[in-house]
Simulated assay, not measured.
Amino acid sequence: MRHTMPRPTGRPLERSAERAGHRPWHRRLPLRRILCLLPLLVVGVWVVQHRSLIGSGARQTLTADPYWLLTAVATTGLGWVAVAFARQGTVLERLPARRLFAAQFAAGAANHLLPSGIGASAVNIRFMTGCGLPPARSSAALALYVLAEATTRVGLLLVLLMAFPQALRLGPVLPASVSGWVVAGAVAAAGALVAGVALVRPVRRLVATFVRTALADARSLHTRPSRALALWGGSLAFPLLQAAGLVAVGLALELQVRPAHVMLAYLAATAVAAVVPSPGGIGSVDAALVIALVAAGAAVDSATSAVLAYRFITVWLPLIPGALVLGGLVRSKII
């Protein structure tokens, strides 16, 4: 009788190597530790690249009224609370409150990895998926939050524009031809996007399925008053708190612009800057805020100082702590 020897699979050798203290390379590689340190590394690169901007903002804050600056810091912290409430309002399930707040704090650092808020969206999708929600419902919750936040932000902007129609004087700041080209470009981009979605059948099916899921979740959420209040209340409070932070910085630096006009300038600037995708809004938000404040009646140097101080408080100051929290959430497998 012929005996055939079993073919070696390689696993016994691998186990014997592990017993001898030699783990395979793919097990020796601390992948999760690398992922934990990655946000801190990227943020460190950002800080080095923008050190002059950070230094200017820090110098501006040192010459300002500390009490109004503390008010700006407080409104920034309350903004993360408002976002956490709004995120909770997008799902029926109860999310862990402390982890939800930590995820929103970490999302600010994640926004410096990818443009247009993609980093924060990725953090929240991973967080909700880790809480047990299916990916389709996590994506629908994200879309509902974006819709609610955009609706309330644009609504506030329209209300302030109607209340103060002469607050922004763009004529001396931007030529009419430039604003016309900006509007035309935005309309053309939106038309191209709609046409592309309509022409590509797989994309159309995917969008239709996603819209059905989002609408079903939205109907269910609005049957729960607590969820609807959290969604719309948090979405309304977030831009108000952000605008209030800029008002506090303006008062700290004695900016000669009415607080209501500063809030209108902030809402208009962030709406325009959203068209230009940049990580953390670096460049686009700063320029739009300076232009809007000048259009509201501030001097160019005063507007630049206020924007530098405001961005230092809201972006650069919480950047390193946010990166540390993000790394901790990754290491704890929360996201």
Rank of each mutant, 00 (worst) to 15 (best):
A268Q: 02
R201K: 11
A86D: 01
A273T: 00
L251W: 12
Q256V: 11
A189Y: 01
A163V: 09
L13F: 14
V83C: 02
P8F: 11
I334H: 07
G89V: 02
G108E: 06
I313G: 01
H3I: 15
A167P: 02
S226Q: 15
P202E: 01
A244I: 11
E149V: 14
T75R: 05
I54Q: 09
S177A: 15
T71Y: 04
C36P: 04
Y266M: 03
C36D: 12
S235P: 06
G327P: 04
W25N: 13
Y310L: 06
T9W: 13
L53W: 11
Q166S: 12
Q242D: 01
A143E: 08
L199D: 08
A230C: 12
L251I: 07
L329P: 04
L289T: 12
V203P: 03
M5I: 08
A243G: 03
T90F: 02
R227Q: 08
L41N: 06
L142Y: 04
G44W: 00
L142Q: 00
L38I: 03
P259Y: 03
G155T: 08
S220E: 15
L326Y: 08
A102C: 03
R98N: 05
P172V: 03
V247Q: 04
A58W: 09
G132L: 09
R212A: 14
A136Y: 08
F164C: 10
L70N: 10
L62P: 06
L289V: 09
H50T: 07
I313W: 09
T213L: 08
A243V: 01
V173D: 09
P277A: 04
P96E: 01
W181C: 10
W25V: 14
Y145V: 10
F210Y: 13
L53K: 11
V211C: 04
E149M: 14
V203D: 01
R137V: 04
L215Y: 08
S52W: 15
E149F: 14
P66L: 03
T71R: 05
L199S: 13
V194F: 11
I282Y: 07
L193A: 10
L253C: 07
I34H: 05
G57I: 00
A295V: 05
A306W: 10
A141W: 13
A20W: 12
T270G: 01
A323M: 01
E18T: 07
S284I: 02
